[in-house]
Simulated scan of single mutants.
Amino acid sequence: MSEQPQQEATTHVRKTRVGVVVSNKMSKTLVVEHVARVPHPRFNKIVKRSKKYYVHDEAGEAQIGDKVRIVETRPTSKLKRWSLEKVLSH
């Protein structure tokens, strides 16, 4: 008789990113630009890759130029899949 392994409840670790707010013109929404430093696949030189994220900001606390930490959440709208976790610096 073979014993079946018990299924463990897996917890999803949410992705986090640190970026700079480039726009706060929408209500309760920020645009945050994240710059990743990654090695080039062929030449191994470090290159910068940037990506913009639409972020939910319920309180409207972040301003343009602020460094913020964002966390992945369930979809809030068509484009928003991130929410503001903390404003790191002004």
Rank of each mutant, 00 (worst) to 15 (best):
Q4Y: 11
S83L: 04
M1K: 06
V20T: 15
G60Q: 02
I46A: 10
V35Q: 12
L79P: 06
Q6A: 10
K67I: 08
R17I: 04
K51T: 15
K28N: 14
T16S: 08
H12S: 12
I46Y: 05
E58W: 02
G60D: 02
E85K: 12
L84D: 00
T11R: 13
M26P: 01
H12A: 13
S83F: 03
K45L: 04
G60A: 01
Q7D: 10
A59Q: 11
V47S: 07
H40T: 04
K86F: 06
E58P: 00
H90T: 08
T29F: 03
E85F: 07
R49I: 13
V71G: 01
V55N: 00
G19C: 03
Q7S: 10
H12R: 14
V47K: 10
L84P: 00
R17L: 10
V68C: 00
L84G: 01
E3Q: 08
M1C: 05
G65S: 06
V71T: 12
R42I: 05
L30D: 02
Y54K: 10
P5R: 07
D66S: 03
R49K: 15
G19K: 00
K25L: 13
K25R: 14
K48I: 01
I46E: 12
L84C: 03
T11W: 09
N44Q: 15
R17W: 09
V68Y: 00
R37G: 04
E8Q: 15
T76V: 13
A9I: 15
L30F: 05
S23H: 07
K25D: 15
R42E: 10
H56E: 07
R81P: 03
D57V: 02
H40Q: 05
V22W: 05
R14D: 12
V47C: 09
K52W: 06
Q7F: 08
L88G: 04
